[in-house]
Write a protein that binds this DNA or RNA. Structure first.
Length: 921
RNA sequence: GCCUUGGUGGUGAAAUGGUAGACACGAGGGACUUAAAAUCCCUUGGACAGCAAUGUCCGUGCGGGUUCGAUUCCCGCCCGAGGCACCA
């Protein structure tokens, strides 16, 4: 009987679906294991072979864990709100929901063909009202909460109001936006509108005026992680800084916990490092410099991590956007300052980035007093100081900071070196080492001692206090788009008011066009009667990351209408044990999700404060493009090896026309009309194409669709091959060169069971050699899967198969466990063979074979031994031995020089006089 | 500039201190076949010696170091990939 993968695969896929084989139930009798893939955004292009890489890995792990006796939750869904569907809608008028549903159906079909063990009864879509009800619910909870820095957790706003009534703003230590302090009496005298405005400074989901990333090309604002190099990540449109009132999430309140939580989770170092950089903790101190503009005095607070360098301050700098600019600009300087600030404001983010090297600035006219020395220093304004970080004002120490140095050089400001022996004639000395000088009470101290000493001094003399700053900013949470979750907020007399929980979900309204309105309002302003109880509703929608932040919780209890997740159910599944996805989400989704989870944890809705225990980043699969070389001015194409003899242009050729770098000449002629009469210069009768590794994309004709592989080789081959390609975490080009190898492996494995059309599995007892091959594989597979080293597991299968083929093994005692071992990797063929062996139940309910080391150890082995790396002799061991026995045996031989004994069980390494190492394999 | 990675045959790769190149692809040779496909077997890092079995030397980006022994650990370079980048 031949291995007919098409028949087998469709048969088992249908049976799994019909029987609900992979349905997960809460079962306290078994340990739980939650394996999650980052759910895809269903794009119009469908899946390419890169997408399933991580899904295959997580599927193998899920199936392995099931065999190991775990109750596995392995769900899948769709991140269905997003820009591409909406852009498409604007162009074509097609409702984004229609496009999205079509794409989802296509994705589902493609995924089903690969034979994943998802529990599809738990599928979620972020655009489904039953789902986004809980996104809106979480938003309202954040709206109704504030962050208590003393308790280090979120608390309900009611507590805050109670505190205000007792003691005004001084009664709490909260994470909040800048605002004027107030007393209890003032609070009580505030109008409803005023109270609402004050509370807005404290809410975790709040509305605030800040500089946002405005993308005119997309007509919306974007979060920091959605902007790269001054361009939008989606679409690549330029982004500018603009002051706007937007919904934001107070993620910054959680900066410390987000940082500290990284120490408790099993993620790669590089990913943790990325998050640490993004959060950007720095410890230093704030200090007040009194500044005088000729008429009035103003306190300017600066932040520094180098308090030790305060004696070297020769000027101060304000960010152009700082509120202090107006206060400290003198009348004589006003014209120059206005011009400078206006010029800075006009620049796009991209221009600012590309001009980092050029130093610009303007003098404000004011002077500040160095609180340590009493010296007078000029106050400048420059764009190299950022309004959004620290206090938007700095003390400049040109001798020990390269940016201050460049500025001082450009504007001829003095430079005072503070560290003995440092040379600041050409560049600043930024290193935190050396002995202090020119620094009063700090003289003679090492920098490492001087920093805390200076901070202590500053605190003691009331100049300032120690302070931790984070780079992490609050997340901009509104988008001026249609295809997203509506905010459950309406404006009652202009006061943002939550829609009551029992009215959720607030459904996305139908509109006839998806563009912004003529006067620039978001598309939702087009909706008829977009009001709640007669009051206008918010017209922005939530960003893409809203729906993906807590989706892993919803899978636990996907159809619960009363809670995001039932408390009992959450206590069973708790958190994601294994999360697999791309590294591109390091500073977006993976930060937001952790923040969201910690918030829900604070309010007692979930029981774990980190959502993803272990995280693996699968590498990217790149495309391998093929080229043909056209001789310039002709329609003649020259084979790659001969192209240096001609002047040629390189042309991308569709990779479906190329096999093993050989071009299908007839196919090429038929590909495009202009190549119909192409001529070729061949080498050895073939046309060899050139190649390059590039991103997989339509325009480079290098996209490989998994469906084609499933048609030609089958899903099991695809699964094995994607794993065989190399280490999971490594990026690699897609290349079908080796696919025949794994396909051959499956065919050979199949043939072990049959003799012609007859089942030829014998019930004879297995020989020691056969058991050895099997148990070597069990041991290897167990170890490799736990380490996510799937490529070497596939190799181990091939080795085992080679050994068993040599032994002509067809024994049930061996083949049955082999089939179980294979089932996580190639589930269809394993199911088929399992049923051929007479089993009625799915192989998923089998148990992983037990590993016995003694089967892999042989007695009476002979070892080759090399002596001084030269002479060889053999050692016969009378029986299987442990380390100590071997050691005794070797000592008997009285070798005094180094020798190495190697063999299938033991390696003995001896240097003169002693045994260095013995490895028992 | 800073951080994180990686660099091994014609190719994908394995080995994490102990016989470098497992396994697979490709290539070459052979068997079966009227033929092809499929399948199976042998060879395959380089150099040298030998009719041969085989032997010797070199070899994991480059240069040092630690060690009886280094692809693996340490120091300094070179190159590639990814991330961050006026964060005071």
């Amino acid at each position: 009987m031949d291995y007919d993968f098409r028949k087998i695969e469709s048969k088992w896929q249908a049976l799994w679906a019909e029987k609900g084989t992979f349905k997960a139930k809460e079962d306290s009798g078994k340990p739980k294991y939650y394996v999650l893939d980052m759910f895809p955004y269903p794009s119009g292009a469908g899946l390419h072979v890169g997408h399933p890489l991580g899904y295959i890995a997580s599927d193998i792990y899920s199936r392995y864990k099931r065999l190991k006796g775990f109750n596995v939750l392995h769900p899948m869904g769709y991140d269905a709100f997003g820009l591409p569907a909406e852009q498409y809608a604007i162009q074509t008028g097609q409702h984004p929901e229609v496009t999205t549903v079509n794409n989802i159906n296509r994705y589902r079909q493609q995924m089903d063909r690969i034979g994943f063990s998802y529990d599809w009864s738990r599928e979620i879509r972020t655009c489904d009202p039953a789902y986004y009800k809980w996104t809106q619910w979480a938003f309202l909870k954040m709206f109704g909460s504030w962050y208590d820095n003393d308790a280090d957790k979120a608390r309900p706003v009611e507590d805050l109001v109670a505190a205000f009534e007792k003691g005004g703003s001084a009664a709490v230590n909260a994470a909040c936006s800048d605002h004027e302090p107030f007393t209890a009496e003032q609070w009580k005298s505030f109008s409803d509108k005023e109270k609402s405005d004050v509370l807005m400074n404290y809410r975790i989901a709040y509305q605030g005026e800040t500089a946002v990333n405005w993308c005119a090309g997309l007509g919306t604002v974007l979060a920091n992680d959605e902007v790269k190099d001054g361009l939008s990540v989606r679409g690549g449109f330029p982004v500018e800084q603009k002051k706007m009132k937007q919904w934001q999430l107070r993620v910054s309140a959680y900066a410390g916990r987000l940082l500290e939580g990284l120490d408790r989770i099993d993620w790669t170092d590089s990913l943790k490092e990325m998050q640490r950089n993004w959060i950007g903790r720095s410890f230093g101190c704030e200090a007040v410099f009194k500044c005088y503009n000729g008429e009035t005095e103003h306190d300017v607070t600066i932040f520094t991590t180098r308090a030790d360098t305060m004696f070297g301050v020769t000027f101060m700098v304000l960010a152009p956007e700082s509120d202090l600019v107006d206060l400290l600009t003198t009348p004589e300087q006003k014209a120059a300052v206005d011009e400078y600030v206006a010029a800075v404001r006009k620049k796009t983010e991209r221009e600012r980035i590309s001009e980092t090297k050029t130093v610009t600035g303007v003098f404000s006219g004011s002077y500040g007093i160095n609180p340590l020395t009493g010296e007078k220093v000029p106050v400048w304004i420059s764009e190299y100081v950022l309004a959004g970080y620290g206090t938007g004002a700095i003390m400049a120490v040109p001798a020990h900071d390269s940016r201050d140095y460049a500025f001082a050089r450009k504007f001829n400001l003095p430079i005072i070196p503070l560290i003995e022996g440092c040379d600041v004639s050409e560049e600043s000395f930024d290193a935190k080492s050396g002995k202090m000088m020119n620094s009063g009470f700090l003289n003679g101290l090492d920098v490492k001692e001087a920093i805390p000493a200076a901070i202590e001094y500053v605190e003691k003399h009331g100049i300032g206090h120690r302070k931790v700053n984070y780079r992490l900013r609050d997340a901009i949470f509104s988008r001026q788009r249609y295809w997203g979750e509506p905010f459950p907020i309406y404006y009652k007399d202009g006061i943002p008011t939550p829609v009551p929980f029992d009215k959720l979900p607030l459904m996305l309204p139908e509109i006839d066009e998806f563009k912004p309105t003529e006067n620039g309002e978001p598309p939702l302003a087009r909706a008829k009667d977009w009001t709640y109880e007669g009051w206008p509703l918010e017209t922005s929608t939530m960003p893409g990351f809203a729906g993906s932040s807590a989706y892993y919780l919803r899978y636990m209890d996907p159809s619960n209408g009363d809670a995001l997740v039932d408390r009992k159910v959450d206590e069973y599944w708790r958190d994601v044990d294994l999360y697999i996805g791309g590294t591109e989400h390091a500073t977006g989704h993976l930060i937001y999700s952790r923040f969201w989870d910690k918030f829900l944890y604070d309010l007692g809705y979930v029981c774990e404060d980190e959502p993803f225990r272990k995280l693996i980043n699968q590498g990217m699969i790149q495309g391998r493009s093929s080229f043909v070389y056209r001789i310039v001015g002709t329609n003649k194409f020259v084979s790659c090896g001969l192209k240096s003899q001609y002047e040629t242009t390189e042309i991308h050729v569709d990779i479906s026309l190329v096999r093993n770098d050989r071009l299908d000449l007839e196919g090429f002629k038929a590909w495009r009309p202009e190549f119909a009469d192409a001529e070729f210069v061949l080498e050895n009768g073939e046309y060899v194409c050139g190649w390059a590794v590039e991103k997989m994309s339509k325009s480079m004709y290098n996209v490989v669709n998994p469906d084609n592989i499933c048609n030609d080789y089958g899903a099991d081959t695809l699964r094995l091959y994607e794993m065989f390609l190399g280490p999971l975490e490594q990026s690699k080009p897609w290349d079908t060169k080796g696919i025949d190898g794994v396909n051959r492996f499956l065919k050979r494995f199949w043939r072990l069971f049959f003799n012609g059309d007859e089942l030829a599995v014998s019930d004879e007892k297995a020989t020691p050699a056969e058991l050895k091959a099997l148990h070597k594989l069990i041991g290897k597979e167990q170890e490799d899967i736990e380490n996510f080293s799937f490529n070497t597991t596939v190799s181990a299968f091939m080795i085992a198969l080679n050994e068993l083929s040599d032994l002509k093994c067809n024994k049930r005692e061996i083949l049955e466990p082999m089939t179980i071992l294979l089932s996580p990797f190639a589930p269809h063929i394993a199911e088929e063979l399992w049923s051929v062996l007479g089993h009625e139940e799915s192989i998923s309910f089998a148990s992983f074979p037990e590993y016995h080391e003694e089967y892999t150890v042989e007695s009476n082995a002979t070892y080759a031994v090399s002596f001084n790396g030269k002479t060889r002799f053999t050692v016969d061991l009378p029986k299987a031995m442990d380390k100590a026995e071997v050691e005794a045996e070797v000592r008997k031989m009285e070798q005094t020089s180094k020798y190495v004994a190697g063999g299938s069980i033991v390696k003995v390494i001896v240097v003169p006089g002693k045994i260095v190492n013995i490895v028992v394999k």
